[in-house]
Nucleic acid binder design. Sequence first.
RNA 1: CGGAGUGUCGUAUACCGGUAGUACGUAUGGUUUGGGACCAUAUUGACUGGGUUCGAUUCCCAGCACUCCGACCA
Length: 557
Amino acid sequence: MKQSQLFTKTSKTVSADIKIASHKFLIQAGFISESVAGRYYFLPLGMRVRDKVIKIIEEEMNKAGALKLITPVLHPLEFWKETARTESVGFELMTIKDRNGSGFVLGGTAEEMMVDLVRKYNISYKDLPFNIYQFSQKFRDEMRARGGLLRVREFLMKDAYSFHADEEDFKKEYQKMWDTYMNIFNRLGLETVVVESDNGYIGGDYCHEFVVKSEVGESKFFISEDGKYASHEDTAKFKKEDKNNTEEEKELREVEANRGKTMEDGVKFHNLPLWQQIKDVLFINEKGEYILAIIRGDLDVNETKLKNISGAIDLRMATDEEVRAIGSEPGFISPVGIDKKVKVIADESLRTIKNAYGGANKKNLDLMNVNIDRDFKTEIEGDIAMAKSEFESLDGSILKEDKGIEVGNIFQLGYHYSKKMNAKFVDNDGQEKFYYMGCYGIGVDRTVATIVEKYNDDKGILWPESVAPFKVHLISLGKNEEAENIYNDLIKSGVEVLYDDREVSAGEKFADSDLIGIPYRVVISKKSLKNGGAEIKKRNEKESRIVKIEDITKEIN
RNA sequence: CGGAGUGUCGUAUACCGGUAGUACGUAUGGUUUGGGACCAUAUUGACUGGGUUCGAUUCCCAGCACUCCGACCA
């Protein structure tokens, strides 16, 4: 296409507020334009890139045997009520009513729609498995849009849903999608870390995020030094080494403790190690029930882990007044003799210590030699601890914290949706059974931004060839017919070319070319013609070289 | 939703309780033509609504919008 026909223009300046490279360059080079916060126009150049990303994803999904279809964007509200997600979604669900007063959800993810579609058919085990997917605009009323396309309120997502007779069959598909994602991101020029993660409002038992390491990313995760284990901070497991758990249990006693409220105050007052102290954190769930999380003093509670283990949808820390309301005291909470309506959830790290110390539910009174089982009972025991850099992974490597951009994920859903929505198939024994399910998402717009995040320099973008809006940026300096002929020839031979035929200065053309970031730059000018043809340069090269005009097509392949 | 901040031509910015500048852009003409070239001319602006004031773009209040930091996600 001729650049003179692009109505969108590059701009020399961009708001000083824009800090993130992909945000800045995508706007400055005319790939996208903001409408309102978190909602963007994809301009002609941006659309070409997005279409290429879509094509790559589609090719790989089809290769894996997935079937493309599309659901309505408006989802009947009753489906979301069936799965109770009108209550539990982490993003704000957007709802609208039609003229009859029927309620609809603006789709933010499509499990309900896909399950409803499938349950309308009489499916036999012979029809299974299948994987159906779509590209569709998703709506999420995010608290805060951020970083251009990195976090928006409306975006294109590829979402796939697979249906299986049993878990074993599902696991094959999970692995297949894992491999498919590796191929997709590989073709997009993105190196991903596959990070074990929390399912959140999607439901199910386990899932993996595909994360591209980046300073501007929002996904924090831990990766072991040997690279064998990677996990989101909300799921990261680590070794809780034995402390003094071989010690003999001593007699429980109460002592006066004129100390402050913090853990350090306890350490100083008793002159005992931090790990021997019990950390007590009182939470209140969405139903107003009390949950006491207890953990070894040198560790912290991870709220997501606690949420999952306790089955809570929402948790918040109790206020000082609420602590006193159950007969305890801020800074001196203890599981020993705590009010019976409080659900005690212990981290397994408490098994690594003996004769612990901590509060006695009364101001300035501490308990010494507290031991689990003997002195207090727990309702649930498990892993509620927050991982930290330098902790040891379960297989003995060292964990390091890192962060990145989550571009895709794969979820095990199990029977989560099929049971709630009563979706069944007929198995070979004639019995109706629930589907075992998985789902698999890729954020297309975010992926575009991530590519720019990875491929840019101080002058602009350096698109990988697989997604570049054009393969060649043909630039004519001054009027010359030769450029026009070359343009027509390239078009004829099927090369995607952007031809800068504008009557502007050379500097402006070069600057725009660097900014837009098309892989090959071909310059035709009096000088180049005198030197024997065209100047050709890859965007990532410093020096150009002269090639004969008839060789241009050969040079770019 | 909590915290912080900002709203001035299309864009980026300046100043100011009393006539709102500048640069880029855009338009026209001319000179240029290898890293955002130059000259001339033209063009366009105080988020909305209240209040204080002789007078408000400026000060105050409210609303709206946007940005940044936190809690959430593709």
